[in-house]
Design a protein around this nucleic acid. Structure first.
Length: 871
RNA sequence: GCCCGGGUGGCGAAAUUGGUAGACGCAUCAGACUUAAAAUCUGAAGCUCGUAAGGGCGUGCCGGUUCGAUUCCGGCCCCGGGCACCA
């Protein structure tokens, strides 16, 4: 074998071996082995891989190879989430069609993935921008339309008045368009929606059927769906002689007697009515309607309101309650109107203080009465009604029930369940996406494209210019015949949200070649996904949409499972610093961290940040996840070229556990390179000088005892193996990597007292080490396995388990504490009784010294671990 | 603002069910080898007082429960993710 570790050479050889043997092609016909579907979230082809990809796909590969060696038929596919905004931006910047840019990126990134040696079944590769794929988006959309799950209504978008185009939230910076710097306006336009709220109850309840999902993701989804049970209350009023009712939803009907105002959203009909003949109010409503669409922005803006001059009647007392317009009331949630109870709601309290509205406490908690000068924690807690007439003394539930019953009789109250979840708007006024398969006909209206005319193909040669959707100017796409009446008609030019593409791709991997149907029987073999791996940033949207889409497909009889992902591992983000320069209002240019020079003073404090190319200063926007848009990704290419794929993979796994957020730094990568190099050198030396002693040496455990020093080495190997197997089971790969390092350290330190026994311990140790390490660094392990004559193909080797006989110890070391502080150690046989250990401890020099004659109060013995003597 | 995480040496981290805080590495320092450097090998090291033996402090901050708290409870600070058109 080679005496030097040459990663470039062995990595190429190993990859060729896997390719030529079809090692990672997943068999569609059952082989008698259990199946395991290991899926990593597919990448957006942004140009180059970044470290987040390397982390994600290495985690997936470790899981894949581990299960393969444990005897599963494993499917690990890969594809491309290929539609989206960045391709249009690149197209505008370079004058290249998004399709070309995307396909070039796919080709480059595929090469990078191959160089990393991932155990991927490339025969199943898909790209969502291919008509063979998105045809089925369109087909299923039409089925949803038939079922009433897809429907049309208006939605609000960001409008750039200069470019005359719809902007994504990301393209709005400080309320201005990113290219034009123009103040962004809100616009109402017709859109298509998917009725995810129809599935809200099931999406919430089924979270309990997903024990393999992280608790935090289930919590986030549950909060997002946001089921609240409350009461819809009516406040009657008279308008232009007609009797009307203002409806509000509340989860705190028990505080109804404390209502001192009502607030409606700017879009509420009552606000519009009041604004007639009230220019100040009309101006305020206009102001509320301007600005961004984002919830984060709405929620952080200053709470403002204006009285409408109208009043409604309190449904119990009949008292007049003033109606305000509030910029914090969302038209999209509940009824677009809320009742204001300043004494028991912090937001209402702030609003009431600001506008000098009455504050009326009607709940007491634990007999405490509250002052209403300033808000105190606890004011919004559940308690008993006071100053509430006939409801006095009732607790939360009794009060809600009584009030709902009383108002129900008058038609002014009913119990209701409200969801925070909104239906999914899928229309995008963009070119580079899946066309929505509809046709607009002057006589027939909106007509679905017949199935036999699918897919509606997206032209691939257009270059957008930033002013609206180029499909609107492309006659060949736009003009068509109405499928119903045959008259000239126009195609819908909106495309689908890219979340549609990613909502079902995992099923298509089972049957990527099927041009007759969306899915087939092979989906029943592989799905659901056994282990899904991807960034925590997808905890809500992508994962919720996929769950919804699965349930729709199930209800259409296409798949048999209820949930797509049995187990979920949410990888922590790989972060990096973000550098930028402001270029006029709203416009920002980002620079990659590798192009920034940072100078520091002697104390290590930063004194300057400049762009390498021009030496001029840049600003830091802090730390954020590696992304195309912030231009802070780090290309792993240099790492792979300098050290090899195995070192890159090992370092990624070693540096942090998978779920932890990771601030990128390649400091420490040398240690990983050193370990692999040192493993190679050790193995080569073993092959030369130690392996020959195996001839005639007795097998381990074959009778006869190992010399104690070698038994200790062997014990260390098996202890670390046990730990590694435990850690593989819980996906903590950093400690698997360190267990491998510890094994190598132990083997290096093994004394050569008995040549034959030494050779046996090393042989077993290397065989264990290589197998445990192989999912992380498959190339070097593949080569060494063969070079040391351990077998033909390590992928086909059995997974090692720790041997109980190797773990036996004659004596244990226990920690000795006095009053909870470490004061020494005692040695005892594993079989020693509690009394023996107590006696040993109390007689210990440190205990006698520290007790200073005081009596021993208590002795706590934790078997196998410690003794604590309390004096 | 709301929802969800995280915070441990100079740095990445470990500590499985409340039981030795800092395993394994990086960087550093000292030594060996070398004409020299690189590479490699050996050793030291949380901070602090002390020549040493030994002691005190220490897991973001404040408080609590416990024989014992990185781990459990209450309150706060900072950082990250998500907030529905980035993917």
């Amino acid at each position: 074998m080679q005496s030097q570790y040459q990663p470039a050479r062995i990595e190429q050889d190993a990859q060729q071996h896997w390719d030529s043997t079809g090692a990672f092609l997943a068999p569609d016909q059952p082989t008698g082995k259990p199946k395991y579907y290991c899926l990593s979230m597919f990448p957006y082809p942004s140009g180059k891989l970044h470290m987040g990809h390397v982390r994600n796909y290495t985690i997936g590969d470790v899981v894949t190879r581990f299960h393969k060696m444990r005897g599963y038929d494993v499917l690990q596919p890969m594809g491309w989430d290929a539609f989206g905004l960045p391709a249009e931006n690149a197209a505008m910047a370079n004058g290249v069609p998004p399709a070309k840019w995307t396909y070039d990126n796919i080709a480059y990134m595929k090469k990078q993935l191959k160089a990393l040696g991932f155990a991927i079944d490339w025969d199943r590769e898909i790209a969502t921008c291919r008509p063979e794929y998105y045809k089925w988006n369109q087909w299923l959309f039409l089925r949803m339309l038939e079922k009433g799950i897809a429907y049309q209504k208006t939605g609000t978008v960001n409008w750039d008045p200069v470019d005359q185009t719809v902007l994504a939230n990301e393209q709005v910076i400080d309320g201005r368009g990113w290219r034009t710097g123009a103040l962004v306006e809100k616009r109402e336009i017709p859109m298509y929606y998917l009725g995810i709220t129809k599935y809200a109850e099931e999406l919430l309840a089924a979270l309990d059927t997903l024990p393999g999902w992280p608790e935090r993701v289930r919590t986030m989804q549950a909060n997002w769906i946001g089921k609240s049970v409350g009461v819809k209350l009516g406040f009657p009023y008279t308008l232009e002689g007609k009797s009307e009712v203002l409806r509000v939803f509340t989860t705190r009907a028990d505080t109804l007697m404390g209502v001192t105002f009502c607030a409606v959203a700017a879009e509420h009909p009552l606000a519009a009515h009041a604004a007639k003949g009230n220019p100040a109010l009309a101006a305020f409503i206009d102001e509320c309607k301007r600005g961004a669409v984002m919830e984060a922005e709405l929620a952080t803006q200053e709470k403002k309101g204006m009285a409408t001059g109208l009043t409604v009647n309190h449904p119990i007392t009949g008292e007049a309650v003033p109606v305000w317009v509030g910029n914090y009331v969302l038209m999209s949630y509940g009824e677009g109107a809320v009742m204001g109870v300043p004494a028991h709601d912090e937001r209402d309290f702030t609003f009431a203080k600001k506008y000098s509205l009455a504050i009326k406490p009607v709940i007491e908690v634990g007999g405490m009465t509250y002052s209403t000068e300033a808000w105190q924690a606890g004011y919004s807690d559940y308690g008993r009604c006071i100053s509430s007439g006939k409801y006095d003394g009732l607790d939360y539930q009794a009060a809600v029930d009584a009030i709902a019953a009383d108002l129900g009789a008058k038609g002014l109250g009913e119990k209701q369940t409200t969801w925070r979840l909104r239906d999914w708007g899928i229309s995008r006024q963009r070119y580079w996406g899946c066309p929505i398969p509809l046709i607009h006909c002057d006589s027939c209206g909106v007509v679905p494209v017949p199935d036999d005319q699918l897919p509606v193909k997206l032209p691939e040669d257009l270059v957008p210019d930033g002013t609206g959707n180029p499909l609107n100017k492309h006659a060949a796409f736009l003009n068509c015949a109405c499928p119903k009446c045959g008259q000239p008609a126009k195609r819908e030019t909106d495309t689908m949200d890219t979340f549609v593409d990613s909502s079902w791709y995992y099923s298509r991997y089972a049957c990527p070649d099927n041009d007759k149907s969306m899915v087939d029987a092979r989906v029943d073999r592989w799905l659901p996904v056994d282990q899904y791996i991807g960034g925590i940033e997808h905890a809500i949207l992508h994962l919720l949409y996929s769950r919804f889409w699965t349930k729709v497909m199930r209800d259409l009889g296409l798949v048999k499972f209820d949930e797509p992902f049995r187990n979920l591992l949410t990888q922590g983000m790989v972060l990096n610093e973000i550098f930028f320069r402001k270029q006029g209002e709203g416009r920002i240019k980002y620079f990659n961290p590798v192009d920034i020079d940072i100078r520091t003073d002697e104390a290590g404090k930063r004194t300057a940040m400049t762009l390498h190319a021009d030496g001029l200063p840049v600003e830091s926007a802090g730390i954020g996840t590696m992304s195309k848009s912030k231009n802070n990704g780090v290309d792993p290419q240099q790492l792979v070229e300098e050290y090899g794929a195995d070192t890159a993979r090992f370092f990624m796994m070693f540096t942090s556990p998978p779920e932890m957020t990771l601030l990128w730094s390649d400091a420490g990568v040398d240690g990983s390179a050193r370990f692999l190099k040192s493993l190679w050198t050790f193995a080569a030396d073993y092959e030369q000088t130690t392996k020959p002693h195996l001839a005639g040496a007795p097998a381990l455990d074959a009778g006869g005892k190992l010399p104690e020093v070698l038994a200790a080495t062997r014990r260390e190997i098996h202890q670390n193996l046990k730990q590694a197997n435990y850690d593989l089971g819980r996906f903590q790969f950093n400690t698997v990597a360190s267990a491998c390092m510890k094994m190598l350290n132990a083997l290096k330190a093994a004394p050569r007292t008995n040549a034959a026994a030494h050779a046996r311990v090393l042989e077993e140790g290397l065989s264990i080490l290589l197998r445990v390490l192989s999912p992380i660094t498959p190339h070097i392990c593949h080569q060494l396995w063969r070079d040391l004559g351990l077998g033909e193909d390590i992928l086909k080797a059995s997974w090692p388990e720790a041997a109980a006989s190797a773990l036996v110890q004659d004596e244990l070391e226990l920690v000795l504490q006095v009053n909870g502080k470490l004061r020494g150690h005692i040695r005892a046989a594993p079989t020693a009784s509690k009394e023996d250990i107590e006696a040993l401890a109390c007689g210990h020099e440190a205990v006698v010294r520290l007790a200073e004659g005081r009596p021993v109060k208590k002795v706590i013995v934790v078997p196998g671990r410690l003794v604590n003597v309390v004096v």
